[in-house]
């Protein structure tokens, strides 16, 4: 199971970074969203994995580590806030400049690729 979670983290990270390195804003936004998935799972995994042991005090234990879960819960919500702001920034930049490229063009030295 640990291997599967680790693979999931790796796959998500690789895809996220590839998207973040694209040249247009929208793939970058998707990339940051995917990167937050990866980071959240990673943080969650620091509490080690447990099956059928939710930290709800009814079964008498043992319980999964509740602390990383609490941290990740807030992280998920903050990631939403961040994605929302970033996509609005991307939208604003596109509407202002008419292009959704993420690299600035150097006007004195001509375009860069």
């Amino acid at each position: 199971m640990e291997l599967i979670v680790a693979l999931a983290v790796g796959v998500l990270t690789a895809a996220a970074i590839y998207l973040i390195l694209r040249l247009r804003t929208f793939p970058v936004v998707l990339g940051t969203a995917m990167l937050s998935y990866a980071v959240n799972i990673f943080l969650f995994a620091t509490g080690r994995l447990a099956i059928n042991q939710p930290a709800v005090l009814l079964t008498g234990g043992p319980y999964a580590d509740p602390l990383p879960q609490a941290l990740v819960l807030t992280a998920i919500v903050i990631a939403f806030g961040m994605t929302a702001v970033v996509v609005m920034l991307a939208l604003g930049a596109y509407l202002e400049s008419g292009t959704d490229e993420i690299d600035m063009k150097d006007e004195t030295k001509g375009d860069r690729t």
């Binding site: 680790a6 693979l7 790796g10 998500l12 990270t13 895809a15």
Partner: peptide, 8 residues
Amino acid sequence: GIAVGGLA
């Protein structure tokens, strides 16, 4: 991806 997955 390999690095982060391996670390995890």
